[in-house]
Write a protein that binds this DNA or RNA. Structure first.
Length: 476
DNA sequence: GTGTATGATTGAAC
DNA sequence: GTTCAATCATACAC
């Protein structure tokens, strides 16, 4: 809208307003506005050259005022100041002011009306929600720590996670503090600026038409501007949290080797259950407990081990032998202890059974030892169960080339012979005699590369229960 | 620095 | 849901 149109409109409106005001004043018995009298407690000077009693005169009066306003900028500062004072004190100033406000209101609202009804910014809502969920915004509680806990659980570690967790929380707290400090600063700046602008507008409202609504609108604009700045702050904070979180979660990939002891425990289990190296949930839990790792880590370990073993059996031969010997030694020791206990309990025990006593192996040649073993097992009528051997035997190939093909009992006996031979070779320094022989072969593996069906549970004898006590390994 | 070992992850299959 | 197989990424030994 051009200023001339505005002035024309203003002149008409003002004239109408003047008429209305005059009517109102007359109706309430007050002094007529047109009568050069008092209005609003302010004494207005008489208009120059007009008595203001008729409509044309008022229009001319108003036109004169508007002309003065329009030309005020062309004058010197002193002149303008003097004219401003004169206009301020003009009897028609309040009426003119209200009309100008009204016109501004109408034009302003039509332009800005739509903006004020803006729905909340979805992006801002997302940011707010995220900050709330992460525990940055809102009350300080479990949001972020919950995320950290979830990440910690995913990482699976034990003691280290608590350190990482606290580290995460500390950093999150730092972000939270920075966020709140900055937010406070923004709010303070916003309030200060709003107050300043409001004061300025109130001050200016003495010289130009500024309605309270307009001031409100201006405050709204300022708040929106500061909101956009706040959104940037929120966005930066979210980014910081995301970076922190991703770094924390990436730490999951940072692996540490298990302790030697843990690896040994796992390997022992693996090689002693080589026919079916699939620990049950209970076994996994037990192993996890023993190794101070999580069940999922146990599962990972067995998954990796199975695959790697299958892929390169030759490479694992030595390891397999080592653990077989280890297990057998343990078993033999347990057996010896059991037998000794048994003898102690019944001194008249006949020699028909197997007695794992050191003196039995005090021979001076490998051959004689092997012969003795051969006689002991192939010729003996007594049965022998090697304690604590698990189903290791199922996966062992006998020295004479026989393989396990389902004749479980026979294979067990043969394997026991093999194992004991190996035990002796290990314990008595006869490694050389057996070196080169295949102690382990993947008999648990079927033609398809998978392990045999575990429907034939192996015999497991608890060392605490001694020979003769046979358990079915239900875990397999 | 390089090669190997090894724990973890991922996607497909069951 | 588990397991397999491939792969990644890091630890570790040299």
């Amino acid at each position: 809208m051009s200023f001339s149109i505005c002035v024309a409109q203003c002149t008409d409106s003002l004239a109408a307003t003047m008429d209305d005001q005059a009517r109102i004043m007359q109706s309430i018995g007050g002094v007529s506005l047109a009568g050069h009298s008092v209005q609003g407690g302010m004494a207005l000077p008489p208009p120059h050259g007009h008595d203001g009693t008729d409509g044309d005169g008022r229009k001319q009066d108003i036109g004169d005022i508007l002309h003065q306003i329009m030309t005020i900028t062309d004058q010197s500062l002193d002149e303008a100041q003097a004219k401003k004072h004169g206009l301020n004190c003009h009897r028609m100033k309040p009426a003119l002011f209200s009309v100008l406000c009204e016109i501004k209101e109408k034009t302003g609202l039509s332009i800005r009306g739509a903006q004020e009804e803006d729905p909340p910014d979805p992006q801002l809502m997302r940011l707010d929600n995220m900050l709330l969920a992460e525990g940055v915004a809102g009350p300080e509680k479990g949001g972020g720590s919950a995320a950290a806990a979830a990440a910690a659980a995913a990482s699976g570690g034990a003691a280290d996670n608590s350190i990482e967790h606290s580290d995460y929380r500390a950093k999150l707290t730092q972000i939270r503090q920075i966020y709140h400090t900055e937010l406070e600063k923004y709010e303070q700046a916003c309030n200060e600026f709003t107050t300043h602008v409001m004061n300025l507008l109130r001050e200016q409202s003495r010289t130009r038409p500024i309605s309270p609504k307009e001031i409100e609108r201006m405050v709204g604009i300022i708040h929106r501007k500061f909101s956009s700045i706040q959104m940037q702050l929120k966005q930066s904070t979210c980014e910081a949290v995301m970076i922190l979180r991703s770094r924390f979660l990436d730490a999951r990939r940072k692996r540490r080797n298990f302790s030697k002891q843990a690896t040994e425990i796992l390997n022992e289990y693996f090689y002693s259950h080589l026919s079916n190296p699939y620990p049950s949930e209970e076994a996994k839990e037990e192993l996890a407990k023993k190794c101070s790792i999580t069940v999922s880590q146990v599962s990972n370990w067995f998954g990796n081990k199975r695959i790697r073993y299958k892929k390169n059996i030759g490479k694992f031969q030595e390891e397999a032998n080592l653990y077989a010997a280890k297990t057998a030694v343990n078993a033999a020791q347990a057996a010896a202890a059991a037998v000794q206990n048994s003898q102690a309990n019944s001194p008249t025990t006949p020699n028909s059974g197997f007695q794992m006593k050191d003196e039995d192996f005090q021979l001076d040649s490998a051959e004689s030892k092997n012969t003795l073993l051969s006689n002991m097992f192939t010729g003996s009528s007594g049965s022998f169960n090697l304690p604590n051997s698990g189903d290791m035997f199922l996966s062992m190939q006998s020295l004479n080339g026989d393989s396990y093909q389902g004749a479980q009992v026979g294979a067990n006996v043969q394997s026991q012979v093999d194992t004991l031979r190996h035990v002796i070779s290990q314990t008595a320094g006869y490694n050389d005699a057996l070196r080169g022989n295949t102690m382990y072969s993947p008999h648990g593996l079927n033609a398809n590369g998978g392990w045999q069906d575990a429907t034939t549970p192996s015999s497991v004898i608890s060392p605490t229960e001694g020979p003769g006590s046979v358990h079915s390994d239900t875990s397999n």
